[in-house]
Write a protein that binds this DNA or RNA. Structure first.
Lengths: 200, 200
DNA sequence: CAACTTACGGACAGGTTGTATGGAAGTCAA
DNA sequence: TTGACTTCCATACAACCTGTCCGTAAGTTG
């Protein structure tokens, strides 16, 4: 029927279709192995539309990364709230579990942790991570420092290092043959490492 | 003069020239942004030689990664030996310092930590890391466990997680504006996190 | 409703990877 | 030494991919 659509709606629909179509393709084959033509065709538009809506392939990928980060951030927040941890150890554990669960699918870990740093450049990747993952870690650490549970120190570098450990654990868990066992191992390693920050 | 060279010498010379030429190019511009033609020209050969010696661009890059890993491994071992740490804390600190120093140049951290996972795929990257960096971490951790200084637990996942923290710290330090200060911050964060594994 | 802006499709130019082909360099047996 | 044989390398070629240009359609505004 082709109802009359406003420009904003057309733009939103096209951008959304491209991002939605690109995401699983990037997740399965990687940034370099997927062509803009494949994405456009999967989205039901042409490359012309893609290049009108995004400055280029990299910008489209950035939009996908942004969407993924936003999503896992929301998932983690929801899981933490559901767990409603009472003491510090439970809170740290809940954060670890939520992060590992959120990174389980390739759409998350492959895009956000493997492809993004190389495709967008580390600086840009770090900037995005800082607004989501690392930023969250930093907030948690800061609250622990404020509560006197972690020794006072510069939070930013500590947040990066802890986030690095979390990222690697997520990849270890997600990419293993026996997923269940690997998640358990990764959880164990993180629970051995991170609570070591607590003052006792 | 063009002395007569044996086939093995020709092969070795060509492969070495390609790897040596490719390394700084990949380090500065990244894997995707450098063409096989640029590499071949920088090496003083043609793409024909490149494709005769390596199965493709990716295999050449893998050779570069391998060389970088081997080199930093040697550097770290030498620095540890030079430091000759006596107690556990000093040993851990020496490992941290040596790793951060080894990753300072882009030729190391950009190639081995940023480009390699995406270009070679995480599985292959992990396999290489395991023969070098992660493997080394695992050996150190195992010795600590054997000595009763770290709680008994599966070493492999712990080694991955610790290596992830080290990698992120190296990137944080290497990519910062004020290098000196960032190295100090990264070192501080690692020294706050890793010794937390020690039983007290 | 007419001028204007925005969204999009198709075609083109430049550059990239990998392969195929022919010749040069080295090896080995007689 | 020589002649067959293998290895090494350079050039030419085909397929593909990105980004841009231009024309057209859809929507907006005075």
């Amino acid at each position: 029927m082709e109802v009359k659509r406003t420009q904003a709606q057309r733009t939103a629909a096209t951008r959304a279709a491209l991002v939605v179509a690109a995401r699983p393709l990037f997740a399965e084959h990687g940034y370099a192995a997927i062509s803009t033509d494949q994405i456009a065709r999967a989205a039901g538009v042409t490359r012309g539309a893609l290049y009108h809506q995004f400055a280029g392939k990299e910008e489209l990928f950035a939009a996908v990364v942004e969407q993924v980060e936003e999503e896992i951030q929301a998932r983690i927040a929801a899981e933490i709230e559901a767990a409603a941890p009472t003491d510090v150890d439970a809170m740290i554990g809940a954060n670890i579990d939520a992060f590992l669960a959120a990174c389980a699918e390739p759409e998350v870990h492959r895009i956000a942790l493997i492809e993004a740093p190389a495709a967008l450049g580390w600086e840009r990747w770090r900037e995005i991570c800082f607004r989501y993952g690392v930023g969250n870690v930093e907030r948690v650490l800061q609250s622990l420092i404020d509560a006197g549970l972690v020794a006072d120190q510069p939070v930013r570098p500590l947040a990066h290092v802890v986030a690095g450990a979390l990222d690697e654990a997520a990849l270890y868990a997600a990419r293993a043959g026996d997923r269940e066992a690997a998640v358990e191992e990764a959880r164990g390693a993180l629970r051995a490492l991170i609570p070591g920050l607590l003052t006792r």
